[in-house]
């Protein structure tokens, strides 16, 4: 089990993430255990996924809309959002919508090209779990959360903008 950051602690990850095969087809589903599946798998195999032993999470790619799972959130144990490149910022909006509009209270994890220098913004937008890019040291990255002590804007972490708190 790989180490990752959840709620600003480095912990081990009980979830297995499934990815599409290179040809775009869906991989086999393990019999048991907690799995995070691609949106396409969730949409295609929802009923069978729900009856198998183990919890289910869904991951959205950067172009996939949170609306696609908004109705299903109560069935999920985790939601993940992929950042194919660290500069692809759609996931920040996806996170805010999941938290602020669709009421997701559970674990929201950033996956993919996730780097230390994005953690502050990711966390402001509602991510509380982070699987860093391979090779990044999660322990060292923890310092990034505290680099800025305030924010002007309303966000998931700070529902009131600074001007209402000043």
């Amino acid at each position: 089990m790989a180490a990752f950051i959840r709620d600003r602690k480095v912990v081990s990850d009980p979830w297995l993430r499934l990815e599409r095969n290179d040809d775009g087809s869906l991989p086999p589903v393990p019999r048991a255990g907690d799995i995070i599946v691609p949106l396409a798998m969730w949409q295609a195999q929802r009923d069978s996924l729900l009856v198998r032993p183990g919890r289910i999470g869904v991951w959205l790619d950067s172009h996939e809309a949170p609306e696609a799972i908004a109705e299903d959130l109560r069935l999920l144990g985790v939601v993940a959002v992929n950042f194919p490149k660290s500069g692809d910022g759609r996931g920040y909006t996806t996170a805010r919508l999941l938290r602020e509009r669709y009421g997701w209270k559970g674990e929201l994890r950033a996956i993919g090209d996730v780097l230390r220098d994005q953690l502050f913004f990711l966390s402001s937008c509602g991510f509380n779990a982070f699987v860093l890019r391979a090779g990044e040291d999660p322990r060292e990255a923890l310092a990034a959360f505290g680099e800025l002590s305030e924010a002007y804007q309303a966000s998931v972490e700070r529902p009131e903008p600074l001007f209402r708190r000043r």
Binding site: S86, G87, D88, G89, Y92, T93, R96, Q118, F120, F121, L122, S124, C125, L148, A151, Y152, Q153, S155, P161, L162, F163
Partner: peptide
């Protein structure tokens, strides 16, 4: 200026 400075959602626009 204040609203846009370190805006968490809009720091990685297209």
């Amino acid at each position: 200026r204040q609203w846009s400075t370190f805006h968490p959602e809009f720091s990685y626009l297209p």
